[in-house]
Design a protein around this nucleic acid. Structure first.
Lengths: 252, 252
DNA sequence: CATATCTTGATTGCTTTTGGTCGATATCGA
DNA sequence: TCGATATCGACCAAAAGCAATCAAGATATG
């Protein structure tokens, strides 16, 4: 193999992968470690697209390759569901928002829309603070560490003095007996949220159906709308609709 | 795995979670405890976004968005003042924390110390959420946009049901007439904070002396301690000490 | 054809990185 | 308060990576 040919191949490899080890290059180019080192040294000096690092080389040029594209796979579904829910919310409304990763996605989809948002979720607070279009009211209380949600008596009593048009909430499980969640303090708080809202929108994924969690939250009759991904079975569709809930299924 | 790659991943993990244990990092990065320690040590020194704490590492950057970055000039001084104030606070205490850039700096200096923190400042919430050593109680209410502080009736009534050992608060101005701040809603909330705390620590910079702001907050007699930078004049020192306030001056 | 030059692969010490151990120190629960 | 446990920093030996060097073969040059 010619020198230039080998170096071109090498550069291409680095470009493709972003990172590559010397060992890997030795194998792929069928040459010695010394040669690879020398080639890298040369490319590092001349091309300015390659940076040598201990153990290999990295591509630092103007990203021909999709560096960041690796990350977004499973998010697609949740984001589509979130978009649908966000579309249900009218500008200027008062929206009560529960914690959870799905509701956080909904919050992202709401960015830019003029709203009054009431929430006990610190991640959502972090998202909305300094958003000029959003008037933010935070529900205080003991912040549960893992989820960043304010709970407890303080939260409950504070919720008693607010009122919202819609509630967007997520759940830990759902059966014909109603909604479930895993934490009794959380359940207590969420009950008060339901009491404070005119319309209750539950957003969940289809895997939650048929699962009960530790604590019973509310009967199905408390829910007005439910948004779920396409994985929901026909049996559960029927259960939900029989309960008088407006069901929206977001197909893949 | 390459060194830079590993450190990048590590930094990302910390950023995502706010706090992460060494054990968790060992598992997720498939490396040894020693290596993780060394990487953390490196990141702690260089990146200034990461702070090592016993058992893991915490993200110290502006995790809750970059809001109002007027921490320009006297930053170093502010940090020294913050360190002093943080030293006044014993592990295990209940601390009530006001909003403001100086108190935020105090909060940073408190990272890692086991405490119960009560606050209405969303930036501080963003800093402490996910910190295992800190039990966080957030004061709810209407979130004032520019500063990210919860105010209003809801905040006041919630403050009525809490009690704290110490209050760390900042002010807009101070004269012999007492403390001042620029926002009546804020003043109302801060008055309730003073009522809820056993010891009131005011932290400020020397430029605030002699300036009145829109709203009178409290007389000097409400203050127990005051921490200020070295720029304070002898006249003001005397005024403060005459008022029975324990004065700590942090020299440059 | 002989010689000079270049390239390559292997070897050799040297440095960096790594993973484990050990005593010291901090934290937590009784 | 006092042990039990966890975490830490310092140290060390092994492994990995590196630059420098050398010899053998290829290629170019006269």
């Amino acid at each position: 193999m010619l020198v230039d040919e080998r170096r071109t191949k090498l550069l291409k490899k680095i470009e493709e992968t972003g990172f590559i080890s010397i060992q890997q290059l030795v194998e792929e180019l069928q040459t010695s470690e010394s040669t690879v080192r020398r080639d890298l040294e040369y490319l590092d000096e001349t091309s300015k697209q390659v940076r040598r690092t201990r153990g290999g080389a990295a591509y630092v040029g103007e990203s021909i390759t999709a560096f960041e594209v690796r990350e977004d796979r499973a998010l697609g579904q949740k984001q589509r569901v979130a978009q649908i829910v966000a579309g249900m919310i009218e500008p200027g409304e008062v929206v009560l928002m529960d914690g959870g990763t799905t509701t956080l996605e909904v919050a992202r989809a709401l960015l830019g829309k003029p709203l009054q948002v009431v929430t006990n979720s610190m991640p959502i607070v972090g998202l909305f603070v300094n958003q000029p279009s959003i008037e933010l009211i935070v529900i205080g209380g003991y912040v549960y560490p893992k989820t960043g949600v304010a709970l407890g008596d303080l939260a409950v009593s504070m919720l008693k003095s607010v009122h919202a048009k819609r509630l967007v909430m997520s759940i830990g499980g759902i059966t014909e007996l109603g909604l479930f969640n895993s934490n009794t303090l959380l359940v207590e708080t969420e009950r008060q949220m339901i009491a404070a809202a005119e319309e209750v929108i539950v957003v969940t994924d289809s895997t939650k159906f048929g699962h009960r969690a530790l604590a019973h939250l509310a009967p199905l009759s408390a829910v007005h709308r439910l948004v779920v991904d396409g994985g929901i079975s026909d049996e559960w569709r029927e259960v939900v609709e029989k309960a008088g809930i407006k069901l929206t299924v977001v197909e893949d």
